[in-house]
Write a protein that binds this DNA or RNA. Structure first.
Lengths: 707, 707
DNA sequence: TTGTTGGCTTGAGGCCGACAA
DNA sequence: TTGTCGGCCTCAAGCCAACAA
């Protein structure tokens, strides 16, 4: 877990008009679909954001590399290298489909950073804070069963998944079937016969499926995910249960065949030129690139021997655990080659490390003092009364210091993993005028940034102040404020226990209106409450948002072993909120807040008749939302509010800077219409727009109180 | 075509006792069999020798790399970097079996080089002149037919190939069959059912074959090669007709994903530290690493505008052609980034470049003045009366300046390609006491260098003086003398038109003596002349050499489309001769020659009844051997002489330094018994022994006069 | 609702000699 | 000598509903 938020340059190649810099060409060629990349990377994966500041630790990098005589390599590099992320390229291994990324970094002078980062930093970060819109209407992820992977048969498609993601079948036929065409990460097309048959009826992929399984070398336990773009295109990705053996993915190759990599890095750092780091988020346990704020924040703790700490951990099943331990020593790990390095400078003893499986050295930024505010929340410590507000991210890299009101969000990220089954990520329906980007900011779309939005001060402060009282970052407290910037997240699938996800939405297919599938007698009424909600939406003041507040009907099914859950509560769309204080040197000088948020919204198209309360919601959670979630909805509110900001109000526009912008300094002169003063921070010559950032969409996850 | 000779560190993993440094672990792990590597690389492939001096041209390397913004990269590197080859590692792509190599280089000061190279250089080179013994008893290479690759059937094994390489079958049975186990480059075992059936009978591989074809993704036109080690182990390799699409081999990856490579190189050059270059000899057309002698030699020509030149060329079918052209300009190709670079500094116009397919810029070392001695020989210019002597290599990197008597040998390398069919590489039979290494130098075998040999002054000068009068390198002419060193070749398969090769030898299998296979009435007498030859051998004075001089019976079959030829004339084993002058500062100070030679010998086990004269041997070639061949045999001589050196004499011993020697300076103190004074050259701290070198074996190719 | 299983069909895989180049 | 073909056999692939969880 590297815990960063991801926003990237990669565009869907077929859908993007302006492609100059947009497409990331994988090693094998062919653009990698951003959304698919993230879907495949999984909910835990994040990347540093383009333009953000990170600290690069060559010592950690070296540990990560499979260099021949690693332990004898001495590099003319400091242990901590402050860098700016110039570019993030997404790749997918041609052989294994494993996703990985290439980071282009350039070293920054610490002084520069202080100047720029101290004040301009926040601005620059925000300017770059682009969470990709990534309207991800329909997607599901299913872990393959033995039957799915056997040569004996095809792929059993969960009913809801088929209905959400696949074009509707003509159920009047005896055996409705159609051909599906889905593209994988490399743009390769796979064709499947989709048939609806059997007694009881079920959706199956038959012809073509085994070819896919064979070619991709899928085994039981791997997961496939289907993803339908807004234009109806099907995408197809895989998430392997484990790294494929006998096949060295490129990302691994990157770490193996370049013994000169670090030498090149040293040179590049010395000359302030660009260097490249390959990063396999799924495979790499070592966190040798960390957000700068995180690095500096770790200094705010005064770790001492004997101090107790806690640390989030990723277990093998990708579930997160939190471990505690005792600091038993502090000192350089390698005083000869890396004197003064903070890399794993803390010697620790774990409280419960029976198997001795964990490292006995950690880096300061990996841990927190055990006394830190953000106590365990969610399942592990459900008793906390603190209102959970957001750095609305799945990501644990947004810790907030004591009392700042910004909780650590690691918990929220994996919160839903306690559920068995796939995630369902509700979100707005593309019809009903939900597409805010198209309906509200036409002038910006001319810049090829169809989902670009603006934030206003008012709106942001509104959001912040309403976030349960804890979200307010004090004016002028730039230290913490900008910590929440720099790493963004375009969208994020929340992994539940079995790693299954469904992002439902209203089906755009005309032939199969949601809630009207009564064939076989099993579907009537399923969407009753929902359709009414959807029906309301058009007339309600929820411009651009579809809000579904299902009835809170607990159900035993929540704990069912089914690998796909159908409950609203598991629906979530990750989102990003960038809260920062404008630079004090900002000409605006008002020190007000800007917030860029992806607000997760519930999907329409959900069965309102299904139970609603999530498994993990004990009654102690039904009120001020102690569990971390993507957003905070005012309990009892009649409409879904985020941080108290009514979704019925006009949505603030967050400008989106597309990565397709040419990498030239004059981009900072681009004038997007904004309703708040832009910080005039110095921009590195990368493609970042001023005061604008991408957001995936404005989502709101309303998982609790009915209204 | 990089044209170097290859001798390497890699050992057969199962057969080598001392493995410490020996095994080259491919990226995917597992040692790569040296012999198999070379067999797969094909006859045209060569590599710089460990310990030798090369000139590295980063400009050319950059051209070769698929680096993002290659044309904007500026490197703090001189255009020509003198380097010593510290190590050569052989690799094979896990996915494609493509062979490639990793060179470990360290920059050398030019002054150092002058000092060391001027005198010690030659010595050091020789010391390191190790052509791997690589007794390659039985091997064949067959281009796959449509039938071979169809799912319908198995693999049709050429009869001779099966008899040479596979254990004999019990032909008394109705359908003799057995299971063959062969290991590929990665050590993976493949099992095949080998059956002898059909009417007429033929050898087939059935069960297991299609699995191999599928796994290796073989198609018609690719070639497979089987290779039987002396211990009877079967090895199995492939040579693809073209690079496998959709699959980026590591070597290509190496050139693609390491944009920092050259930066690392620059750093390493500056700090005199080791850097690594990946080199795919089959794929790389650019010659950015060239032998130092070749580089310096190019300065001996004074190229000028208007000058005519000739250049060897590799066409797509791997056949060599020689083109001529006119120098139309001289100047830096990139005066901004690479001022003074010799890389492609000559602007040329080709005489016959209709398709404009060739570069209009060449590097000086790629061409020769058209007036140079070594005129076109072989088919293209058969009229030359000059006696072809050797730098006995297949390799074109051993040109010899005008009048030195050392002809260019490129022609000889590809000479046999005019034949359609597989090569047959005759060589000594392991019985009949042919194994010189075992019979003659037991004291050296104690050092784990079973085939180590020594050369004496006498022998070498003998060889040289007898080489048709042109091979003698003047004493003291170190400039040219040491040019012939530094690049060695362990063994080399000569590609004929279809790239097929057979290296026959007497079968060691007891059950199936050659010449006695009369089953089905089709075999009796086939080996008549041959068995007698073989029978003679044991009593003849050819100690350690099996020499077969078949009758010179021209045959129409030579031009048959059969993909496997059975003629002695195509039999050749490449060999290496290292001729150098000992340093003038040598304490021995005698300025005498040392020569390390692999002498190709004809195989026994050939059908003497088959026609003998190769297709390309017109009568104008039947006498003083104008066509280049691996060696020169005195015409009409009763025994096979190389350069007039009688093979019946005691063979000089060339010390072999195994690569398994630890890379420590004190290796220079190892005292091998030698019969000539060792030059006390300074040795770089690489694993080279003094005055010793590896030789593959002592081969003699006697392709002409019967005796 | 969906995972697994047995029944059934189909066609690719694969072994064979015939035939011919 | 060996490439290709037709004949023939076998078995895995793959489609289906039944059944059960």
């Amino acid at each position: 877990m590297i815990g960063m938020i991801d926003l990237n340059t990669v565009e869907e190649e077929e859908e993007e008009e302006d492609e100059e810099d947009a497409n990331v060409v994988g090693v094998g060629g062919g653009g990698v679909c951003l959304e698919l990349w993230h879907a495949c990377a999984g909910p835990l994966i994040s990347l540093p954001k383009k333009g953000s500041l990170i600290v690069y630790l060559p010592q950690g990098h070296l540990e990560h590399l499979a260099v021949p005589d690693r332990d004898n390599i001495r590099l003319p590099l400091p242990p901590h290298v402050l860098c700016r992320v110039l570019h993030v390229k997404l790749h997918a291994d041609v052989g294994t489909d494993e996703v990985y990324a290439q980071l282009s970094l350039v070293a920054q002078d610490q002084e520069e950073q202080v100047e720029e980062g101290g004040e301009g930093e926040g601005g620059a970060e925000e300017l770059n804070g682009d969470s990709r819109p990534s309207l991800m209407p329909h997607m599901f992820c299913k872990t393959l069963t033995a039957s799915d992977t056997s040569t004996h048969g095809g792929f059993s498609v969960p009913r809801r998944a088929a209905e959400d993601c696949f074009p509707p079948l003509d159920y009047k036929q005896q055996r409705p079937s159609q051909e599906l065409v889905a593209k994988d990460l490399h743009g390769m097309e796979w064709r499947f016969r989709h048939i609806y048959r059997g007694q009881p009826r079920r959706h199956l992929l038959t012809t073509g499926w085994s070819a896919f399984v064979n070619k991709k070398k899928l085994v039981s336990g791997d997961a496939v995910l289907f993803l339908r773009g807004n234009n109806g295109d099907l995408r197809l990705g895989i998430r392997r249960a484990a790294q494929l053996k006998n096949s060295i993915p490129y990302s691994a190759v990157c770490t193996q065949i370049s013994p000169g990599t670090l030498t090149a890095v040293a040179d590049a750092v010395a000359t302030k030129s660009v260097f490249h780091i390959f990063y396999n988020p799924r495979a790499s346990p070592s966190e040798f690139i960390i957000p700068h704020w995180k690095f500096t924040k770790s200094f705010s703790y005064s770790f001492s021997v004997g101090m107790r700490f806690k640390m989030r951990f990723e277990s093998e099943d990708a579930a997160e655990r939190r471990y505690t331990g005792l600091i038993t020593g502090i000192g350089d790990m390698d005083p000869v080659r890396w004197p003064g390095s903070k890399w794993r400078c803390l010697l620790v003893r774990w409280d419960d490390d029976v198997e001795n499986s964990r490292q006995n050295r950690v880096s300061p930024w990996e841990i927190e003092p055990a006394g830190s505010i953000s106590g365990s929340i969610g399942l592990s410590a459900p008793g906390s009364k603190r209102t959970k507000i957001c750095m609305p991210s799945v990501n644990p890299d947004f810790p907030v210091p004591n009392g700042s009101g910004c909780p650590d969000l690691g918990e929220s990220a994996r919160f839903h993993k306690v559920l068995q089954g796939q995630e369902i990520i509700g979100y707005t329906s593309p019809y009903d005028g939900m597409d805010v980007s198209r309906s509200q900011v036409p002038e910006i779309r001319n810049h090829h940034y169809p989902e670009m939005r603006r934030c206003t001060n008012d709106v942001n402060s509104d959001i912040l102040s309403a976030a349960g009282g804890g979200a307010t970052v004090p004016v002028g407290n730039s230290e913490y404020a900008y910590k929440c910037t720099g790493f963004g997240e375009s969208f994020r699938f929340h992994k539940v226990l079995q790693g299954q996800e469904i992002i439902p939405g209203n089906s755009p297919y005309q032939g199969a209106p949601i809630g009207s599938r009564t064939e076989n007698g099993g579907f009537a009424g399923y969407f009753e409450g929902h359709t009414s909600s959807a029906g309301r939406r058009g007339t309600e003041p929820f411009q651009g948002y579809s809000v579904l507040m299902p009835a809170s009907t607990p159900s035993a099914q929540v704990s069912s072993p089914s690998s796909v859950l159908m409950f609203q509560q598991t629906s979530q769309v990750p989102w990003t909120s960038l809260v920062y204080e404008s630079s004090k040197r900002n000409k605006g000088g008002d020190g007000s807040y800007y917030s860029l948020s992806n607000l997760s919204m519930l999907s329409s198209g959900q069965e309102a008749s299904l139970p609603f309360h999530p498994y993990y919601m004990g009654k102690e959670h039904t009120e001020p939302r102690k569990y971390a979630h993507e957003c905070v909805v005012e309990p009892g509110s009649k409409d879904c509010r985020l941080f108290g900001f009514s979704l019925t109000d006009r949505i603030p526009v967050v400008s989106e800077v597309d990565e397709t912008l040419p990498t030239s300094p004059n981009i900072t002169n681009m004038n997007f219409e904004t309703s708040f003063p832009l910080p005039k921070a110095q921009m590195p010559s990368s493609s970042m727009g001023p005061g604008c950032t991408k957001v995936s969409a404005l989502y709101a996850v309303c998982a609790t109180a009915p209204f």
